[in-house]
């Protein structure tokens, strides 16, 4: 009983610290790229890192906590957004996508990436995993959501998402490199 309790409290603390990291990354002023004012924040980097470092369940819970706190009214999302309007608005799907994105990244890291023996193998599989979960899954929720809510067709909705793609690819590379580096020194992080 004692050991089960110990690891449960410890897991909750890990979930909370990564939730706070996602939130803190949204508090840093956003960068505006090009003519179209697309706010680029590090927030999805936090979502990717939570999955890649904590695994599927704890990673998903970290994203879930941020979504719950934001919907309950804390202005935690990029640009100081929060409240129920965030979910009802045109970009609500991306927010839901975070939860499943970190779940998929976590599962791929746990069952695929960390079973690779070589560092290069881990970095390559890690990058593929983060792109699948952190870009593929999140866009899979975000693009149809925007289309459904606004009435735009899927193609136009997808073009809108492309503006985020360069930033997200950079974040995916950073996540893969950071996760592989950190897992090398913290071997027990996901076991």
């Amino acid at each position: 009983m004692a050991t089960a309790t110990t690891s449960q409290t410890r897991n909750t603390v890990y979930v909370a610290i990564f939730a706070a990291m996602i939130a803190a990354m949204g508090l840093v002023p956003p960068i505006v790229i090009g003519i179209v004012p697309v706010p680029i924040t590090l927030q999805t980097l936090g979502v990717m890192l939570a999955g890649a470092l904590l695994g599927p369940v704890r990673g998903m819970l970290s994203s879930l906590i941020v979504v719950v706190l934001a919907l309950a009214g804390l202005p935690l999302l990029a640009g100081g957004r929060g409240g129920l309007a965030v979910l009802l608005g045109p970009t609500g799907g991306y927010l839901l996508g975070w939860i499943f994105g970190s779940l998929v990244i976590g599962a791929l890291f746990k069952f695929w990436v960390l079973r690779q023996k070589s560092q290069t193998g881990r970095i390559i599989t890690g990058l593929v995993s983060v792109i699948i979960g952190g870009i593929g899954v999140i866009y899979l929720f975000g693009i149809p959501w925007t289309a459904a809510v606004t009435g735009l067709d899927l193609g136009t909705s997808a073009i809108g998402a492309i503006a985020f793609l360069p930033g997200d690819l950079i974040k995916a590379v950073v996540t893969a490199l950071v996760a592989v580096t950190v897992h090398r020194s913290y071997r027990a992080l996901m076991s």
């Binding site: 909750t12 979930v15 909370a16 706070a20 939130a23 803190a24 719950v68």
Partner: peptide, 14 residues
């Protein structure tokens, strides 16, 4: 515990 710790950690992590 998770929710309150997360709120507590936000300013620290920033």
């Amino acid at each position: 515990l998770g929710l309150s710790l997360a709120i507590r950690f936000i300013p620290e992590l920033k």
